[in-house]
């Protein structure tokens, strides 16, 4: 028996919004420690990694580990039927071929349940090595989204260059070039608005705008985003989901011409 209850279904709505551009379907691996999802996009350029810890749920029971393959568009249709402040309970029997989502309104005046067929997905899991990154940048997530959106008007790739002076996002194309520089802030009062840079070695890497823009669909999940970079390894774009876990996107770099 698997049962996970979360007071606010809006968190799941936001997660689905954040990954549905990249993934059509995905396996949710449920165990005693929580719910995990790892999946590459169709082009195998990026990887989505979601972790929701069992202790972040209001109720969590997982007698036996199970993997639930779900069509994310259909899951999004079901969550559209929930109000943001509805409580959601996800339920499945051991070895079941369906999953049930139950939504309860705050005052219990409305209870609905939706049963969805599970899919058998043959998804391979990749081993992600522990990395000491050369640069770790934390910045307001809406600012990162804004920069990606702005620069993608001018080019297909963004060069992210991190030095101790700050982070520079650059692009170029037929129109010309665009550069946005972000410096570390000294404003320690407003953590959500701060920019911090931890740099061991300067790093410059090039990434496809299309993917960066997809990742920023996760902006409503967290006020801050963390970018981790080392030479010649994938970028990690991480959104912390408060008290519950994280959503990470890994993006393979482009080789510069």
């Amino acid at each position: 028996m698997f049962e996970a209850r979360l007071v606010s279904s809006s968190t799941f709505k936001k997660i689905l919004d954040a990954v549905k551009d990249l993934l059509n379907e995905a396996s949710f691996d449920c165990s005693e420690s929580g719910i995990q999802l790892q999946a590459m996009d169709n082009s195998h350029v990026s990887l989505v990694s979601l972790m929701l810890r069992s202790d972040g749920f209001d109720k969590y029971r997982c007698d036996r580990s199970l993997t639930m393959g779900m069509n994310l568009a259909n899951m999004a249709k079901i969550f559209k039927c929930a109000n943001n402040d509805d409580t959601v309970t996800i339920k499945a029997q051991d070895d079941a071929d369906t999953v049930t989502f139950m939504f309860e309104a705050k005052k219990q005046e409305k209870i609905s349940d939706y049963e969805m067929k599970l899919m058998n997905l043959d998804q391979e899991h990749l081993g992600i090595p522990e990395t000491d990154f050369s640069c770790v940048i934390r910045m307001p997530s809406p600012e990162f989204a804004r920069i990606c959106r702005d620069l993608s008007q001018f080019g297909e790739s963004i060069v992210i260059s991190c030095t101790k002076e700050g982070v520079k996002f650059s692009t170029g194309g037929d129109i010309g070039t665009a550069n946005v520089k972000i410096a570390q802030t000294n404003n320690f009062d407003k953590e959500e608005e701060s920019v911090t840079i931890e740099m061991q070695e300067p790093v410059t890497l090039t990434f496809a705008c299309q993917y960066l823009n997809s990742f920023t669909k996760a902006t409503p999940l967290a006020p801050q985003v963390q970018l981790s970079m080392s030479d010649n390894v994938p970028l990690v774009v991480e959104y912390q989901i408060p008290d519950l876990g994280h959503l990470r996107f890994y993006l393979a770099p482009k080789i510069e011409d």
Binding site: H44, L47, H125, L126, G127, T206, A208, P234, L251, A252
Partner: peptide, 14 residues
């Protein structure tokens, strides 16, 4: 796209 590397070049299969 030209010059785009794949993510599974970096992470081995489990």
């Amino acid at each position: 796209a030209r010059g785009q590397r794949k993510i599974d070049e970096f992470f081995g299969k489990n």
